[in-house]
Amino acid sequence: MKYSRWLVIIPYFFLATLPLCWLLLTSLKTQEAAISSTASLIPTTAENLAPGDLSFSVTLDAYRKLATPHTGKAHAFFHYLLNSVIIGLLSTLTSVVLGTGCAYGFSRFRIAGARDWLFFILSTRFLPPLAVVVPVLMMYRVFNLPNTHLGLILLYTAFNLSLAVWLMKGFIDEIPRAYEEAALVDGYSPLQAFYKIILPHSATGMAVTAVFCLISAWNEYGFALALNNAEAVTVPVYFAGLQGNIQGIPWPQIAAGVLIFVVPIAVFTVLVRNHLLRGVTFGTIKQ
């Protein structure tokens, strides 16, 4: 029994990491080796290998080239990565902050029509986002928002906010009111009770919400493509734009860039892993 779970975990691990392994191998190849019709799987330091060999010689060229602009592009990869980081982090931060505040209000105060408001907030997710690309684009033109970081930050925040409110409301509902009331009686104002008691207890919920918001903003493609052709282009749009490049598709560079692109999300998720798994019941309220 103790070992049998590994029978599941190990095959699944290989299956799940296969694409990542393939990316890693490709990122270490030359363009020629990457597009060769026979797959070479074993990295070596040897040079001048015969065509069709299972080995390929390792090069870090693809990573080096990420630092310089590709043919036909205004900036190097890291410029677009920076765009993704700015837009992803700021929209996540805004969603979590606004979502937490809004959820706290719905959770703790009597609001006229609270259920209807919450349903309205949820209903903003009913429509597939791409259905509103055109109206959003027209609206953005009026406010000069296309091609700006602010434009995408606002948009991702708007899309993620409904999720953030609902997730955070669930978490805050779970925090017993008695903790806040104890703080009020202990001499704190309602606002102080919010940031001394509610915020620390919401950390789990905020971490979970942040993961979801960041992943959705990080990977978003449709709007990023429609609203941008220069300044605020994010990594997914940048890579897609390399298709039909005059020099062919630079697979090793794409593989290297994707690996770098995946790492922050993976690291972030691992960092908040304990929060994701930890329950929100605390055990000092005896029911």
């Binding site: 009331e181 703080a183 104002s189 620390p200 605390f282 309220i285 029911q287």
Partner: peptide, 30 residues
Amino acid sequence: QLPAERDVALVFQNFSLYPNKTVRQNLEFP
């Protein structure tokens, strides 16, 4: 008046200690 202004102490039926604090921190908080 707000609860904070009244200078009364309330002991709850369900104890309501702050769960993320130690006993000392619970006593320090007020």
